[in-house]
Amino acid sequence: MFNETVLKEIDEIKGRYPDFRSALLPALYVAQREFGWLSHEAMSYVARTLNLPEAMVRGTASFYSMFKHKEAGRHLIQLCTNVSCMILGAERLVDFLRTKYGMEPDNTTQDGRFSLVIMECIGACGTAPAMLVNTDFYDNLTEGKIEEILDKYK
């Protein structure tokens, strides 16, 4: 179950809306932050905390691709391969992540360090190719730059 501070945080979120249902997305976000991903257990906690049916929590959570439904690595890489990024070589970068780090899209590396998710446009077309590592944003990517960046994430 959530610890006291998290429960307080969710309580505060609840206070912002006229009914608990509206607090669902932010509460799920908190759960994902706490547990790394949204397991059935995590969704159950959210349901209990907000007094909502479990099935509804799962239905909502599964609609949004930014919620994770599989256990993820310590760091989540979200790389864009949509048009601008693709033209500027994003596909090559996917190959680089594959060969250099053993990453596969929608999978987690053996050592549990990275999970890779291929994204649609993340709104950085002007400085493509671009990616997010956890919540940090990086653009104008090259193979070398990626190596340098990922060194920071152990």
Partner: peptide, 18 residues
């Protein structure tokens, strides 16, 4: 409230929570 539609787009379907 035991079931819900899960995921979206062409993958949408009904599932019970478990």
């Amino acid at each position: 409230s035991a079931i819900s539609m899960i995921e979206r787009g062409g993958r949408t379907r009904m599932e019970p929570f478990s």
